[in-house]
Each structure stands twice: as structure tokens, then as C-alpha cells.
Write a protein that binds this DNA or RNA. Structure first.
Lengths: 194, 194
DNA sequence: TAGATTGTTAATCGATTAACAATC
DNA sequence: TAGATTGTTAATCGATTAACAATC
């Protein structure tokens, strides 16, 4: 998606797997193989139409719908995510923010009020929510997550450094373990002298 | 590291690859294979000593040193990372913060002053910095990154949605593409109904 | 000594790459 | 029609799993 948006911005109409390969650092073969798992989006002798490929991949990822999102934990990271307008552009709309701190409750982030975490079940009964973003301290992560899943949440974007084992199995968890990423950087700094 | 710290917190002294396997969701075989690529940390009939394994992996990742870190871009995300004490505990010490906004310059995050981005080269000449965290808008990412590398920075933790192709090749880049992670969540919500 | 569990080799599996006929 | 490039099969490569002798 990132590379295709860039191409669209630059008014590139068509692209071959070879050209994509040069940009993205995968082999052309792999790009063709992978795209072909989802359908034949290209045309022999022509390549791929950028707009068409973009919209096909959007559809595959599920970006043609919008998603109702709540953010649980409005510390710096929660607020950063709440303020990030690009998510809304892609169809992820923040409908609620929750925290425990009395001084935060009642304040707003981009027009959305921060509510007490105690009101979350009431909120979820009234409003259908697809995705919960977890940016809370790790000791509360599991209990909060398990409370959420009983209210029809479909996915959890988990920023806590805990691997959530949920009681209900059909909930999708996507981990954004930032400190794992930092340790990877550290390892590579120390070991990838070429 | 996450699982081992948890074991240490719970005063677990030794653990077998089988037990780790149950916790982590890898096969015991893979755990033994992977650890063995770095050395024989276990003992037949006993398993792995948790403290010892933790310290060996710390060493491999490079967590026995400390790293001087600067954060470039002190919006919500930059400040969130600057405030995250756990990074400092692991040896990643924030030595400088930089931004373009005049109203931010001169203010402090956890005792570290936000400086003008124009003063960054001067700062880097005076102070040795290992890691730069990039939390700036994507249009400035590449030029800032290339400016950094000429001053002895070893690694870049890249939160911008751009893949940095740097002029200098021996700089390690670790991408934390948060929106990629969100799209993965979206895809899995729509496609992983089991 | 018997039991447990590693380190390590061999077997299996899946993912990547190469090659090319089909076709725009 | 000739050239370009896909879709797709076959070959290669690497990673995961299974198995077990070594040994604590």
C-alpha cells in the first residue's frame, strides 16, 4: 500500500513486477507469486495498473469499510494514536477514549471525550466497536482484554508488552511490541557489521 | 527476553525447552535449534538456567552497554517514547530531543530540553549518539536521516511511514511502521475467521 | 544408576527463485 | 507481428520438525 500510494501521488499509471521489485527489494518473482495468491491483477505485456492494484489490495485488506475504534489508556502513546489523522483517513475512526486517571476524564482528544474506564461496558453495549487499542500498563492488560472480548470486539491492537491469551479465541490480536523492535535494532547494531 | 523476565519475576530458576515451548507457542525443537545457533546455554537432563539464559541473550542483543539516544520530532509519539521509562531501564538513555516548532523548543521532557532541529549537527559533534529515533512527518524523513548518518549515528529507529534508503550503508534501520501493523490487523479481522 | 533433557543430525515442509509458455 | 510481461510450474533453497545419541 505504501509503495502504491507513492506511485499514485506521482501519477504513475502502470508498473511491472520488475519495477516494483527494484523499489521494494523483493524479487519480481515473489511479487507476482504473492499477488497471484489473491487473483490475477496484472496483464501480460503491460504489467499492473497502479490504481487497480491499489483498490484490489485495499479490498483484500478490508480498507473499504470503516472501523469503529476505541483507545484504552490515554497516556502519551494513546493520545498520540488518537491524534494520528492518517488512521481516520484509512477508515479507522476513534469513537471513544478511556482512562482511569480522574484528571484526564472529561477532557477531549480531537473532539472525542475521555471517559472513565468503568463506563466501558455501558459504552460497548450502546455502540458497536470493531477495534480496541490497548495502551495501558501491562499488569492490567489481560483483565481488560478479556472484559472487552465479551462485547463483540473483533480485534485488539496491543501495545502492551504482554502476549494476550484470550478466553475467546476468535478475536484477532495484533501486537505492536515497540520494545521488541528496539531490541532488534540493538541486536543489529551489534551484529550486522557487513 | 519478555518471557524470561516474567520467569525471573516469578522466581523460576530453571526451565526446559518444552516448558518454554508451551508458554511461547514455538516448538521445543525450534527453541533448542535457535538458542544453539548462539551457543550451548542448556544442560542435558536439567534444561536452561533462567538467569543464565537471560544474561546470555542480553549479551547477544547488546543490552549490557548503554546507548545514547536522541529523538527527532517531539509530537505526541516522540514525547511518548521520551517518557517511556522502560527504555532507560534497558540502557537506552535519551540525551537530546529536537523539533522545529518554536513553542516546543526550550521546554523539557523528563528533564531533557527540546532543542531546535537546526542545532542538531552542533549537538552531534559535541556528544556521541548511538541511536536516533525518527518521529517526524514523512516528507522530511529522508533528508534528516541522511544528515544524521554523517555524524557517526549507528542506528535509526524509524517511525515514519517511509523506507529509508540511506547514502551510507552501514547504518542500521529498524522500522516501526505502525500503520502497517494496523493494516495487518484489518486484514486478519476480515480473513482469519477460523 | 535411571530419568530427563539437551545438542545435533536427518527428514520434512514450505517459501523463494528460476524458467517459460501463454497472451496482451 | 514483435516485444513485453504476466501467470504458473518446476527447481532450489532454507527453515522447521522429528528423532535420538550424548550426557548431566
Amino acid at each position: 500500500m505504501r509503495y502504491l500510494s507513492e506511485l499514485i501521488e506521482n501519477d504513475v499509471v502502470r508498473i511491472s513486477s520488475k519495477e516494483l521489485s527494484d523499489k521494494m527489494g523483493f524479487t519480481a518473482s515473489q511479487i507476482r507469486q504473492d499477488l497471484n495468491n489473491f487473483g490475477g491483477f496484472g496483464q501480460q505485456g503491460y504489467g499492473y495498473n497502479v490504481e487497480h492494484l491499489y483498490s484490489e489490495i485495499s479490498r483484500i485488506i478490508g480498507l473499504e469499510k470503516t472501523y469503529n475504534v476505541i483507545i484504552i489508556g490515554t497516556g502519551n502513546l494513546g493520545q498520540a494514536l488518537g491524534n494520528y489523522v492518517d488512521f481516520e483517513k484509512k477508515g479507522f475512526v476513534v469513537k471513544g477514549l478511556f482512562d482511569v486517571k480522574p484528571e484526564l476524564i472529561g477532557t477531549e482528544v480531537r473532539g472525542v471525550m475521555i471517559r472513565s474506564i468503568d463506563s466501558i461496558e455501558e459504552f460497548l453495549r450502546a455502540q458497536s466497536v470493531d477495534i480496541a487499542v490497548l495502551t495501558i500498563p501491562k499488569n492490567h492488560a489481560i483483565s481488560v482484554a478479556n472484559k472487552l472480548v465479551s462485547y463483540g470486539i473483533k480485534g485488539i491492537w496491543n501495545f502492551t508488552p504482554v502476549d494476550l491469551k484470550l478466553e475467546q479465541q476468535d478475536i484477532v490480536v495484533e501486537n505492536a511490541h515497540l520494545s521488541d523492535s528496539l531490541l532488534t535494532l540493538s541486536y543489529n547494531i551489534n551484529n550486522s557489521k557487513i
